[in-house]
Computed example of a mutant assay.
Amino acid sequence: MDFSLLYFANRKVDDAPAEYDLLFDAARFADRNGFTAVWLPERHFHPFGGAYPNPALAAAALAVRTERVRLRAGSVVAPLHDPLTVAEDWAFVDNLSRGRVDLALATGWNAHDFVLAPERYAERRAHTVESVSVLRDLWAGKTVERTDGKGRPAQVATYPRPVQADLDMWLTCSSDPAGFEQAGALGLNVLTALLFQNVADLEPRVRAYRAARQRAGHDPDTGRVTLMAHTFVGESDDSVRELVRAPFLEYLASSVDLWQDHWPELRAHSGTALLEHAFERYFRTSALLGSVERCTRFVERLRACGVDEVASLIDFGAPAPATLGALHHLDRVRRAFAG
Rank of each mutant, 00 (worst) to 15 (best):
P220Y: 06
M169K: 03
T172N: 10
P41R: 00
V115G: 12
R210L: 02
D21M: 05
L135T: 07
H46Q: 14
D89C: 09
P220D: 03
F92E: 09
N54Q: 12
A58C: 09
A208I: 00
A87T: 05
L135H: 06
V307N: 02
R146D: 07
A117E: 09
R210E: 01
T192G: 00
V134I: 14
L171T: 09
R28Q: 13
H328E: 12
V86S: 03
A111C: 10
P204W: 01
R32E: 12
L62D: 04
V206Y: 05
P177G: 08
T143H: 13
C173H: 03
T323A: 06
D315L: 09
W39G: 12
A178I: 09
L22N: 04
V93D: 05
E145K: 12
V199H: 03
E203M: 10
V225W: 02
R146C: 07
L5G: 01
R100I: 04
L275D: 08
L105P: 07
A104Q: 08
L327P: 01
V115L: 10
P177A: 07
D31L: 05
D15Q: 10
A18Q: 14
N189F: 02
R43Q: 11
W139T: 05
D219R: 00
F92Y: 14
L23M: 09
G108E: 06
G271P: 10
F3H: 02
H269Q: 15
W109F: 13
V163W: 11
T222N: 13
L22K: 08
R224E: 14
F298W: 11
L330I: 04
V86Y: 01
N33G: 06
A322E: 15
V225E: 02
A73V: 00
E280W: 00
R43S: 08
M169I: 01
P17V: 03
V132C: 02
L289K: 01
F3S: 08
S75G: 11
